[in-house]
Computed example of a mutant assay.
Amino acid sequence: MKLSTKGRYAVMAMVDLASHSRGNPVALADIAERQEISLSYLEQLFGKLRKGGLVKSVRGPGGGYLLARIAQQTRISDIILAVDEPIQTTRCSPGTPAGCHNNKGRCLTHDLWEELGNQIYLYLSSVSLHDICERRILGSSGMFHGGDRPGTVAAAQ
């Protein structure tokens, strides 16, 4: 499974918003500059995020966007689904009895890939914006990206 640019950029922008808001609206132009994302693309994404109830807009001077709920309650899966990013690992349409073969049969590995998609969704549902802002997510190297902390690989060397 590969997450599209739409899903990745939406998560990046929401983490930026959560990190920089501090109760004040954040301009999309500022997010675009910090995250190196096209402003017009962000406008499209934030339209979907607003419709999904994840952000609210503030008009006028000093306007921009705010989180619609606290970062601890905003799940990464919510963000991805709000921008119409399917969390799907099979070629088949989710929830339909028809499979991906020409004869509408399911492939031998269908259940494997479907369960992988379920696990990805469960993981993304277990992670909040706050978790990412607080750097509670480790990369595959086991090292924190925000500097060395006790117990990390870099600190042990």
Rank of each mutant, 00 (worst) to 15 (best):
Y9L: 03
Y9C: 11
Y9N: 15
Y9F: 12
V11P: 07
A13P: 06
M14V: 04
V15Q: 05
V15G: 02
D16L: 08
L17P: 00
L17Y: 03
S19E: 10
S19K: 13
S21P: 14
N24Q: 13
P25H: 02
V26H: 03
A27C: 00
L28G: 06
D30E: 14
A32C: 02
Q35R: 14
E36F: 01
L39T: 02
L39A: 05
L39P: 01
Y41R: 07
L42T: 03
L45K: 04
F46I: 03
F46D: 05
G47P: 10
K48T: 02
K51F: 08
G52N: 06
G52D: 02
L54G: 06
L54E: 03
L54I: 08
V55D: 09
K56Y: 01
S57I: 01
V58Q: 07
R59Y: 01
R59D: 01
G60F: 05
P61C: 00
G62D: 02
G64V: 04
G64Y: 06
G64N: 04
G64S: 04
L67P: 07
A68E: 12
R69A: 11
R69Y: 06
I70E: 15
Q72V: 05
T74V: 14
I76H: 03
D78F: 12
L81M: 11
A82W: 08
I87H: 10
T89I: 09
T89C: 15
T90K: 05
C92K: 15
S93V: 14
P94C: 00
P94Y: 00
T96C: 04
T96D: 07
P97Y: 11
P97K: 13
A98H: 11
A98T: 06
G99Q: 10
C100G: 12
N102L: 14
N103R: 13
N103M: 04
N103I: 00
K104L: 15
R106E: 10
R106Y: 07
C107Q: 05
L108K: 06
W113D: 09
E114L: 12
E115K: 12
E115A: 11
E115C: 00
G117A: 08
I120F: 12
L122S: 14
L124R: 09
L124G: 08
S126E: 02
S128R: 05
H130P: 00
D131C: 05
E134K: 11
R135E: 15
R135S: 14
R135V: 11
I137Y: 07
I137G: 08
L138K: 10
G139E: 10
S140N: 06
S141C: 12
G146R: 09
D148E: 11
D148N: 05
R149C: 02
P150Y: 01
P150E: 06
P150R: 04
G151I: 04
T152Y: 01
T152M: 09
T152W: 03
A154T: 10
A154S: 12
